[in-house]
């Protein structure tokens, strides 16, 4: 996977420019809901191997115009050869969900490339009640499960495909910062 880790916060993924692996027999490009220009141009420039450009629907709308559901995608990847490469585009949470689907199917992280996430939104994992929350943009964030104000850490958990949230100022939870900070 072309994801490196930042020194200091070792667990936060860094998304480096993606190039096509010319040795792969199958080249699979996967976008969330709509195909962003960066993925389209990567697909257009791919000249080696048999290529496919797939869209996966995550908005709850019915899959239309050849778009796939997550289950469709799982079925589709099951028949791919070992010599396949995957190029993912969408939100960070979407790309890691797809990476999980692929590794569950037996592929390894070396075969999975992620483009830069399309937004700064994070998926947050509450370490107190284990609730997962999507679309988190500010810290602290009030947990939708237990109501605690969570400090959104830069620590990314690959298992949960989410950033870790811990109760802010645990000694005195009533003592909150004056303003929430926008996440980068």
């Amino acid at each position: 996977m072309q994801v490196e880790m930042i020194p200091g916060v070792k667990s936060r993924p860094v998304y480096t420019p993606v190039t096509v692996n010319p040795r792969s027999q199958r080249q699979i490009f996967i976008a969330q809901d709509q195909i962003p220009a960066a993925l389209q141009s990567l697909y257009d420039g791919c000249e080696q191997g048999e290529k496919s450009l797939l869209t996966v629907v995550t908005t709850g709308a019915a899959a239309a115009g050849g778009a796939l559901s997550i289950d469709d995608l799982a079925q589709r990847v099951a028949s791919l050869p070992q010599s396949s490469s995957f190029y993912l585009a969408g939100s960070e949470a979407f790309m890691w969900d797809i990476a999980k689907l692929l590794t569950d199917a037996g592929f390894i992280s070396d075969q999975i490339a992620m483009l830069a996430p399309l937004s700064k939104e994070r998926r947050l994992f509450c370490t107190h009640c284990y609730t997962l929350m999507d679309h988190v943009t500010h810290s602290p964030h009030v947990c939708s499960g237990c109501g605690r104000a969570l400090l959104v850490r830069d620590h990314f958990s690959k298992i949960h495909r989410a950033y870790v949230g811990v109760q802010i100022n645990a000694e005195d939870p009533a003592d909150l910062p004056a303003a929430a900070e926008e996440l980068s």
């Binding site: 070992q82 010599s83 390894i108």
Partner: peptide, 10 residues
Amino acid sequence: AEAMGVPAGF
């Protein structure tokens, strides 16, 4: 493996 495009991680 390299010639066949099988990633080294396998």
